[in-house]
Design a binder for these strands. Structure first.
Length: 587
RNA sequence: CGGGAUGUAGCGCAGCUUGGUUAGCGCGCCACGUUCGGGACGUGGAGGCCCCGGGUUCAAAUCCCGGCAUCCCGACCA
């Protein structure tokens, strides 16, 4: 049955809701697709739920096509499995926790690795049962510190999560590739444009990891692309190639200079350039000639702490996200005044390599650009003094390299001679090889051919289903409203009848009957309101094809509008149904 | 958890500085009439715990104190 606007549970808003910033949030609310129920928690209205179900259906079809088997876990989970993998504590405040009447601890599942692992352990015990891939489409709960951007980052959301189980690395590779291929098909069908980027495997552990990012300015993830070779990576995961050693035999011996009132890189550079005796032959001093040493405290999972110094070029900052990723599972804490007091050899603002390194109890790691033979200005470990012409390898060595400086547009590509461009995207999918972390923690083993026990290796694969709805809206909307791809649109055809007498409405009923006989879904604007209201609502709601029955009827035609292109075509009334049916079937 | 902003009708907002009619405007909603192809118009209506709790005052949406909530930026975040 056609959805009739006169009775459809829908109210479009003429004005933007005041709490919505990003286009997808604004338009999904204005178009009556979703309503906010609580911060980061949304109700789906009839049109929104139609779109959601289409997205979910496509995801499910592609998982099934790939031979993965669907299961369904509860969202309300007991504490014990999460205790076994220590995530009951590791997840921290992000976990929604609750108690039953006997005061037993429960949680609302933020993710389901434990349950899948235990289920397989429960039923399978032989290598002959593997490989196996299971998936579910489930509501997940995460008490995010700051939900934002509407449906894009909620506290309740639907995720398709899959897990593969294999007996060896070669099997895991095959399972990973099977999921990757299924994801390509899925996102293609959803009408999303996306990039596959190298990613950090994050807190989950594991090795290979790729993210599917839908590029849009409102995306929360930054990623780089190489314009030359196709390399793409999440900004967190970019690995800068170590610079080649430089010949520094011509560099004069390092010398300490008085540099009063230069606690920052900018003030230091200004002072260097004002001193004629320190002038460079080739060019003025720049921030990139200085070596900035940042000290932080690492807190390891066992509770112990460690001081870590990171040396980066002075024009760069340490990207805390990248640092966290590099030192995981340790956590990074800023160096406090108390920490400085406990280590008097560190002159705040003038920290140099002389006070760092294993012999001083502070592990010292360098950005790859600070390679052997390169020459720097850096702190002299005395308030108000810096060292000039300090050469790496000749004058000091560090304990290793670490690549955690911020990534910038135009940085060199790590895998070719090209340059990187920086962009933002929404993470719509993530695939990675988990390895044996969960299998070991929960003792998932199977018997091998020889009768011994082998630990299963796993992969983990996620698609944000509700997030994909918003990502599609984000990528396809225009100034007038939403603009759905045919694969997920709530209705195939939006029929608008205009005019004051019954003629156009009668004509619409006839056309709609034919369309429905042909299997198309229709939204029919049968309201007796002015034409402008209907046209604007049709644009806002975003069905891919809008059919107007009104003035054209005098010439015996229906007016067809392509929502995405804005193109208008007149089609003879007698041929409208077959024309539209062909259009929809062609995709 | 830091910084900023905001809470007044279903939605978007004004009023608060300088306390004082019956708290106002636009959209939406109801009734009647006129309109009828890009968010029409007229007339008449319905709809309010002015976020909550204290306080000051003859009198508080408005001033003071304390909460709570929401949004934005950052921190955080498979």
């Amino acid at each position: 049955m056609a959805l009739r606007m006169s009775t459809l549970f829908l109210r479009t808003l003429r004005e933007d809701p005041s709490d919505a910033e990003v286009p997808s949030h604004r338009l999904l609310v204005r178009g009556g697709y979703v309503r906010r129920a609580a911060p980061g928690i949304f109700s789906w209205l009839p049109l929104g739920w139609l779109v959601y179900r289409n997205v979910e259906r496509i995801v499910r079809e592609e998982m099934d096509r790939a031979g993965f088997q669907e299961v369904h876990f509860p969202a309300l989970l007991p504490r014990e499995p999460y205790e076994a993998t220590s995530r009951w504590t590791e997840y921290g405040d992000t976990l929604f926790r609750l108690r039953d009447r006997r005061n037993a601890d429960y949680l609302l599942g933020p993710t389901h690795e434990e349950l899948f692992t235990l289920l397989v352990k429960d039923l399978y015990s032989s290598y002959r049962d593997l490989p196996l891939s299971l998936y579910q489409i489930q509501t997940k709960y995460r008490d995010e510190a700051r939900p934002r951007a509407g449906v894009l980052r909620g506290r309740e959301f639907v995720m398709k999560d899959s897990y593969s189980f294999d007996i060896d690395d070669a099997g895991l590779d095959r399972s990973y590739e099977a999921h990757r291929a299924a994801y390509l098909r899925t996102f293609d069908r959803l009408g999303l444009s996306y990039e596959i980027v190298d990613a950090m495997s994050g807190a989950m552990g594991g090795s290979a990891s790729e993210e599917f990012l839908a590029p849009t300015p409102v995306g929360e993830d930054s990623f780089v692309r190489c314009t030359t070779c196709g390399y793409a990576a999440n900004a967190e995961a970019v690995q800068i190639a170590p610079a080649k050693p430089v010949d520094a035999t011509a560099v004069p011996a390092a010398h300490v200079e008085d540099t009063p009132d230069t606690p920052t890189i900018a003030t230091l550079v200004d002072l260097l350039n004002s001193r004629e005796d320190l002038a460079r032959d080739d060019r003025p001093w720049a921030a990139a000639d200085t070596l900035k040493n940042v000290v932080v405290t690492l807190r390891h999972p066992d509770g112990t702490t460690e001081s870590l110094a990171v040396g980066v070029p002075g024009d760069r900052d340490v990207d805390l996200k990248r640092l966290e990723a590099a030192v995981t599972p340790a956590e990074v804490e800023p160096f406090t005044d108390d920490d400085f007091a406990a280590r008097p050899q560190l002159a705040k603002g003038y920290i140099g390599p002389g006070a760092l390194g294993a012999e001083h109890g502070i592990r010292f790691l360098l950005d790859p650009r600070i390679s052997d033979g390169t020459r720097w200005v850096t702190g002299a470990d005395v308030h108000g003094r810096h060292v000039v012409d300090l050469v790496v390898g000749r004058d000091f060595t560090a304990d290793g390299t670490i690549d955690v400086a911020d990534i910038r547009d135009g940085d060199p590509c790590p895998s070719c001679d090209g340059t990187l461009t920086l962009a933002r995207g929404i993470e719509i999918g993530h695939i990675f090889k988990l390895g044996r972390r969960y299998a070991e923690a929960l003792d998932l083993t199977v018997q091998d051919e020889a009768g011994g026990q082998i630990t299963v290796t796993m992969g983990s694969y996620g698609i944000g289903v509700t997030r994909a709805v918003a990502a599609i809206a984000e990528q396809t909307h225009d100034d007038a409203g939403l603009c759905w791809p045919r694969s997920v649109t709530p209705v195939d055809i939006h029929v608008v009848a205009t005019g004051k007498d019954d003629t156009p409405f009668d004509a619409a009923e006839a056309v709609i009957g034919e369309l429905e006989d042909a299997g198309l879904s229709v939204l029919y604007d049968d309201r007796r309101v002015s034409a402008g209201v209907k046209f604007n609502d049709a644009d806002l709601l975003g069905a891919p094809t809008i059919v107007v029955l009104g003035r054209g009827l005098q010439r015996g035609v229906a007016e067809i509008k392509d929502r995405a292109t804005g193109d208008r075509t007149d089609i003879d009334l007698a041929e409208v149904a077959t024309y539209l049916t062909d259009l929809v079937r062609a995709g």
